[in-house]
Amino acid sequence: MADPILPYGRQTIEDDDIAAVVAALKADFLTTGPTVAAFENAFAETVGARHAVACANGTAALHLAMLALEVQAGEAVIAPSITFLATANCARYVGAEVVFADVDPMSGLMTPETLADALTRVGDRRLRAVLPVHLRGDAADLPALSALAAEAGAVLVEDAPHALGTTMAFGNVAERVGDARHSAMATFSFHPVKTIATGEGGMVTTNDAGLADRLRTMRSHGMVRPAGSDPWWYEMPEPGFNYRLPDILCALGLSQLAKLDRFAARRRALAKAYEAALAPLAPIVRVATRPAWSDPVLHLMCVLIDFAAAGVTRREVVERLRERGVGTQVHYIPVHRQPYYRARYGDLSLPGAEAWYDRCLSLPLYPAMADADVGKVAEALKAVLGA
């Protein structure tokens, strides 16, 4: 029998996680019960935010953020082109237009320079939000991005599904991704390949009580219960969505969240081992650049490969690695290249995003990996590249 494929990412589910879900199944509430609030409170405490609002998935979290800000049709939202589709799509869900920002070709992150360029392309539309993505788990330059956004009359909404557990140091101030010190909100995902898993699930953190209330209203059909009304009475001032996260999944989230420190330490150790194992493959292979202020809990182990210099295509590398038991993925195809956005905005020139895409490849990274797996991946990559 062939050795199993090392996937680029996967969940770590243990017996106590299963027991937590079983207990939730035996409890009185399968959804809209007390476990939701317990998960929200624990998550807010973990990241250092005043409020956390659970929802159905990371895409719902982004959509809710746009609804909470009351972004209107025809207004503008800036998003980096190197991200998953949802970062841009959330603006279109509310009728706003997307202005794509370029990224640093070595880190994949939106920078103050690429944001400044995007700001020149907003035109006469009202800019409402800037959505930096903490790609791979590394934090973007939040103070600088926030200052530029504020000067343009907008706020930051951090797209942070990759970065749960990441810490930052801007100046001498220690911060955590999700504490929303520099942003109106931060959004998270608990998809199985993320740092903690609930199957599907998302969270929005904020320090603004008004935004938190609106997030909760819009995740549950837009229903409100006016003070002093009959106990069965509800009203819908505007339609919302069914974006609730059930107690069953929140029970899994609580169990997983309790392991965040262990998961984070393991991911950091594996990332350090990769740096050492891949160093001999430079300059053909380079680990994505990590900003000095960021101490990431990496969700993705992204490397940049000079395929032309190695004399192989990325597809050949992907297929040959798989033959050696190593799964990979590409994060991401530039969103501005997607047919929908090309038809809407034309062909854009974003050289940083193109350069990132041309070289990027995500290698296996998840807590259950053995130390020897890093060496296996590095040796397989060396053989495939002929290095």
Score class of each variant (00 low, 15 high):
N89C: 00
D138N: 12
E200P: 00
V377M: 09
G202D: 06
C90W: 02
L64E: 03
M369K: 02
F39I: 06
A169E: 14
D102E: 08
E275L: 13
A269T: 12
G375C: 08
T35I: 10
A292H: 07
R324Y: 00
L164F: 04
G165M: 09
P364G: 12
L300R: 08
G325S: 12
I13Y: 00
A154S: 06
M369W: 00
A91Q: 02
A184I: 07
D141R: 13
S220I: 02
Y340M: 12
D102Y: 07
A149M: 11
L64H: 05
L245T: 09
L381W: 03
A383I: 00
A44Y: 12
A152C: 06
A139Q: 02
G352P: 04
L211G: 06
V335S: 08
G386W: 02
E14K: 14
L109Y: 01
R92W: 11
V155G: 02
V103A: 11
A44E: 08
R125I: 03
E238A: 15
L148R: 13
G9C: 05
G325A: 11
V287F: 05
Y93L: 12
P112L: 10
A251K: 10
L381Y: 02
A2R: 15
R125H: 06
W233E: 13
A355P: 04
A387G: 14
M185Y: 08
Y332P: 10
P34I: 09
A180W: 00
P132C: 10
R216V: 02
R214D: 01
E354S: 12
G74Y: 05
A370C: 04
R128A: 14
S255P: 02
M185E: 12
R10Y: 01
I284M: 11
Q11D: 13
A88Q: 10
R214Y: 03
I18R: 15
V53N: 03
L127T: 08
L109E: 01
A61L: 09
R324T: 00
V204F: 07
A184N: 06
V98F: 04
L350M: 11
A343Y: 01
D373N: 09
V224Q: 13
L67F: 01
G9M: 10
E45C: 02
P7W: 04
A73G: 15
E40T: 09
D179R: 06
K272F: 00
Y341M: 03
A174Q: 14
P7A: 11
A258R: 15
R266W: 04
D208M: 05
D230E: 14
G123S: 08
A212T: 07
R219W: 03
G327A: 12
F84E: 07
D306H: 03
L281E: 05
D104Q: 07
T59H: 11
R216F: 01
L278Q: 03
T206K: 10
S183H: 03
A197E: 04
A147S: 14
A144H: 13
S81C: 11
A60E: 01
Y243E: 08
A42T: 11
S294P: 03
A65C: 15
A372F: 00
G311Q: 10
H63V: 15
E175Y: 05
A140K: 02
P4F: 05
A24R: 03
Q338G: 00
P334F: 06
P7C: 13
L281P: 02
P239D: 08
G253E: 07
D295Q: 14
T289K: 14
Y93N: 06
M203C: 13
A2H: 09
P161G: 09
G74A: 10
R50G: 01
L69R: 14
G240C: 11
V133A: 07
A129D: 01
N57C: 12
L304D: 05
L211M: 13
